[in-house]
């Protein structure tokens, strides 16, 4: 069992930040990382490859009921919800979109909070809708760590601002500070 499970949600304007974060983590980074990013339904291929170019960690789109392993980056497949099942596996679903989104950030955050409780680190980046805010609050309520990208830095501030309007997260950080934080918890 890992000490931390890192969940990152992002939408419009978050791609470069994600790339930057992944590229800044060492190849020995041992915590599993989960990415739920809104993207075009029909753009199936290419995304994993794009994220992998400079990432030292392996990026995969998980299959249903995958057992979670440290040191991997799990990217929610396009047009599926990705969430954590009570058996600690990654599960997929084609349920209707939540907040017009599939994958839904709220859904993966809430399921992670429920299963991993205070071991969750939830990070919400740039985006143009309010998906993720409620899920991040759930992570807080279960004792996890919550980080919101500084809306002043985010290319599109709606998503981080929606979280800040809802509650006070553990940290409001720039992408560089998020990178520093993620490196600091890794021993």
């Amino acid at each position: 069992m890992a000490n931390y499970y890192i969940f990152i949600g992002g939408s419009a304007g978050s791609f470069q930040s994600i790339v930057k974060i992944l590229n800044s983590l060492p190849e020995t980074y041992n915590y599993p990382i989960f990415l739920s990013l809104h993207r075009l339904k029909h753009v199936r291929g290419g995304f994993v490859e794009a994220l992998s170019i400079k990432s030292k960690l392996k990026v995969v789109e998980p299959e249903d009921k995958t057992v979670i392993m440290g040191g991997l980056v799990y990217l929610a497949p396009a047009n599926y919800h990705m969430y954590i099942e009570v058996s600690n596996t990654i599960a997929l679903s084609t349920e209707e979109p939540v907040n017009h989104s599939r994958p839904s950030i709220d859904l993966v955050f809430k399921s992670a909070a429920y299963v991993f409780e205070k071991k969750v680190i939830g990070i919400l980046l740039s985006g143009a809708n309010k998906d993720g805010a409620e899920g991040l609050l759930e992570i807080k309520n279960y004792g996890g760590t919550t980080i919101v990208q500084d809306p002043k830095e985010a290319s599109v501030s709606v998503m981080p601002q929606s979280a800040l309007d809802l509650f006070k997260p553990s940290y409001v950080m720039t992408v560089n500070q998020i990178i520093e934080f993620l490196n600091s918890i890794y021993i």
């Binding site: 969430y83 099942e85 599960a91 349920e95 399921s111 429920y114």
Partner: peptide, 9 residues
Amino acid sequence: YAPKSFARR
């Protein structure tokens, strides 16, 4: 059924 998704339904 997978418990988490079933609960959501």
